[in-house]
Every structure is written in structure tokens, then in C-alpha cells.
């Protein structure tokens, strides 16, 4: 079964499926290009594709687009590393003690529920418009999303495993490394991905409201000048960047964990 399934799942990569998948994109592009001639949509509402393309090339050549993208990605990386580096160890520490975990869980789930975006106005009051606010909002969103999944991950470990490890003469440290961390790892990795999804939205949203640069700022700022081609360019880039992040970073992690721990249904 599996031997047969493997070649057939590898084959379509370069086969008609990929080409077929491009057809709808071309259809969307064609409909977009033809829309002004078929209807009365004014150009400021729907600029033709070539105008978006020339906005893309212009902004790439003058270096403004790469610098906006770089600003966003750097900020996301900083918030992501900061949020997770504090959330995962803290989450493990909290979860080690049952009493502490039970005390903290409602608080954490409450803070996780306050949408990251809802912090933006308060962040502006505290840090002013700009880098500080945006970073605070992303790190905050990622921190609470990640710490919550870490704590839940530890709580989901069957208690039998602790007893089994202790029966075999494991020390406290052994229990932490071989039961707690490896038992919660899958949930932590899921949390890493979920927190990125929330963090990405928070980044774009925070840049729109509190930013002074970055891809989100660029997209909303263009609305005020009716530069719709830049708005559409921003949207497309937001989509492509997310796909790239997901494809390059998270799909591989997911594959490794699924294979290692056999989570695939």
C-alpha cells in the first residue's frame, strides 16, 4: 500500500497538476485586466495589473519596497524570537507544578483571548507610534499564544508516563527532559505555528495603525492617497510572504514531527 502510494504522491509535483493550478491564477489575472473594459469600475478603484506591476518594479528599483519588507520581516522575527524564548521556558516552568498551572491557566487563556490587535491603542499610549508599539504588540500576541499551548501541552501528557519514568529511577531532571519536554514538544511545535499565524496578522494590523514603516503601513497609507495599485501590491505581497514563511519554515517542521511522532491520521 504505502510503497505504491509514494511514487504516485511524488509524481504530480511537476505534472499537469501544477500547470492546472496556474490556470485559475491566469483566469483571475485576465478578469482583472479585462474588468475596466467590460464595466465602469473607475481606475482608482481597480487599477489594471500593469499599473500594479509598474508600481512593483518602481518601488523595487528605488529600494523602498525591499526596505518595507525587510522592516516587517525583521520586526516579525524579533517579536517571534522574543515572545517564544520567554513563553516556552516560562510555560514549562508553570506547567511543572500542578497547583501553579491550575492557578495560571485562566489568567493565561484570558490574556490569550484579548486579541493582540486590541493592545495596539494602549501600546501607542505607552510607546508612541512606531517601532516600539508594533514590536510590543507582536511579542505580546506571540507570547500568550505560545505560553498557552505550552502549558496545555504539558497538561495533556498522560500521568502514567511520569510514574513509569519515576519507577525506572528517573531523577527530577530526567523527568523534565524525557517526559515533560518531549511529551509537550508536539503541542509546542503546533504552538510555534499558531503563534506565527496570529503574530503575522498582529504585525500587519499593528503596522497599519501604529507603524511608521513596513508592509502593513505601506498598504494602509496608500489608501489616503488613493494609490490603489500600492494597496493591491501590498495585499499580494502579504499573501506571498505568508505562503513563503509557511512553506519554508513550518511545513518542514510539521513533516518532521508528523513522521517522528506519527500524528498523521
Amino acid at each position: 500500500m504505502t510503497v505504491q502510494a509514494q511514487p504516485s504522491s511524488k509524481m504530480p509535483r511537476f505534472d499537469p497538476v501544477v500547470i492546472a493550478g496556474l490556470v485559475p491564477f491566469l483566469a483571475v489575472l485576465a478578469a482583472w485586466a479585462l474588468a475596466p473594459t467590460l464595466s465602469d469600475i473607475p481606475a482608482y478603484k481597480l487599477p489594471p495589473p500593469e499599473k500594479v506591476w509598474s508600481a512593483f518594479t518602481d518601488m523595487t528599483l528605488d529600494g523602498s519596497l525591499p526596505s518595507e519588507i525587510w522592516a516587517s520581516l525583521r520586526r516579525l522575527a524579533a517579536g517571534y524570537v522574543l515572545g517564544n524564548l520567554t513563553a516556552i521556558p516560562l510555560g514549562l516552568a508553570i506547567a511543572l507544578n500542578r497547583a501553579v498551572a491550575e492557578t495560571m491557566t485562566p489568567v493565561l487563556s484570558f490574556f490569550q483571548s484579548i486579541a493582540g490587535i486590541a493592545w495596539v491603542p494602549l501600546a501607542i499610549i505607552w510607546f508612541g507610534v512606531g517601532q516600539g508599539s508594533v514590536l510590543f504588540v507582536i511579542a505580546n500576541t506571540i507570547f500568550f499564544s505560545s505560553i498557552y499551548s505550552t502549558v496545555i501541552g504539558v497538561q495533556l501528557i498522560p500521568r502514567v508516563l511520569y510514574r513509569a519514568a519515576l519507577c525506572h529511577g528517573a531523577s527530577r531532571l530526567d523527568v523534565v527532559t524525557s517526559v515533560v519536554i518531549s511529551g509537550a514538544l508536539v503541542q509546542i511545535l503546533v504552538g510555534l505555528r499558531t503563534s506565527m499565524a496570529y503574530g503575522w496578522r498582529a504585525l500587519v494590523a499593528a503596522e497599519m495603525i501604529a507603524g511608521t514603516n513596513g508592509i502593513g503601513y505601506m498598504t494602509l497609507e496608500a489608501v489616503q492617497w488613493y494609490q490603489t495599485e500600492i494597496v493591491i501590491l501590498g495585499m499580494i505581497l502579504i499573501g506571498i510572504l505568508w505562503l513563503a514563511l509557511d512553506f519554508l519554515i513550518f511545513r518542514p517542521i510539521e513533516h518532521v514531527t508528523v513522521r517522528r511522532w506519527g500524528l498523521l491520521a
Binding site: 493550478g21 496556474l22 496578522r201 494590523a205 497599519m208 490603489t228 499573501g239 505568508w242
Partner: peptide, 20 residues
């Protein structure tokens, strides 16, 4: 693939265009 692509454009990014 086209569904995947539009899924990746987060709603936050649509709001500026919808405002226009």
C-alpha cells in the same frame, strides 16, 4: 492553489482595499 493563495492574504490586508 488559488484557494491557498487567497487564504494567505489575511483579512487585515483586505480592509484597506475594501475601504476604497
Amino acid at each position: 492553489p488559488v484557494i491557498n493563495f487567497f487564504y494567505a492574504i489575511v483579512e487585515v490586508a483586505w480592509i484597506p482595499l475594501l475601504v476604497i
